[in-house]
């Protein structure tokens, strides 16, 4: 009888040891999951800030958009520099803008000889068109690149960036 009881105790101890050994990596996996979820939340917030900032710039007054590198001062109600976001504004981000004119902007076209005797406005033919021309415009398109930066664990900086163009398509208002 005594011999049998001893065997069961050893069995339970080995089983507990195995279970404990398995639980250590499992606990670490759970911790990894939590950290990854939190990291994803920060990344999603950063992308939301990036998207919002560039969309605001697409709507902003063209003449108010500053030109330069690593611009940190906001304009037209658009937040740049250090901002907080997320639940209870618990996450800190930095939003910076790089902007430059795309010069020159070239547009190709073929004009029409409307004074030609054979010209018909409702059916122009090949001979009615003038040779290819190009107009060059300066300071009418700005390339906007916004970068959102934040710190992950161990102060590791991470960033997301995107770009778009803002054109001064309302410049002839008179």
């Amino acid at each position: 009888m005594l011999k049998k009881s001893g065997t069961t105790l050893i069995e339970i101890m080995i089983a507990l040891f195995v279970l404990a050994s398995a639980m250590i990596p499992i606990a670490s996996i759970m911790g990894y999951g939590g950290r990854a979820t939190s990291k994803d939340a920060r990344r999603i917030l950063a992308m939301q800030l990036l998207d919002k900032t560039l969309r605001q710039m697409l709507q902003a007054d063209y003449d108010e958009i500053p030109i330069g590198k690593n611009i940190q001062n906001g304009f037209e109600g658009i937040a740049l520099g250090d901002v907080t976001a997320g639940q209870d504004k618990g996450f800190s981000f930095n939003i910076s803008l790089d902007s430059e004119y795309v010069n020159p902007v070239k547009f190709k076209y073929r004009g029409v000889g409307v004074n030609r005797p054979t010209f018909k406005a409702d059916s122009p033919v090949g001979d009615d068109f003038l040779p290819e021309e190009t107009i060059s415009l300066n300071d009418v398109v700005i390339k906007l690149t916004v970068t959102v930066t934040w710190n992950e664990q161990q102060n590791l900086p991470v960033s997301v960036s995107a770009m778009t163009y803002r054109a001064d398509f309302q410049r002839r208002t008179g």
């Binding site: 076209y109 073929r110 068109f129 415009l137 163009y165 398509f169």
Partner: peptide, 28 residues
């Protein structure tokens, strides 16, 4: 999406600058 929005603005600028050639080119 942002790039497409930006290109749309440039296209609007071109149309506003030189609309006539587009009209005749499209008719032809």
């Amino acid at each position: 999406d942002l790039l497409a929005e930006g290109l749309t603005q440039i296209a609007m600028l071109k149309f506003k600058e030189i609309p006539g050639p587009l009209y005749y080119a499209y008719i032809a």
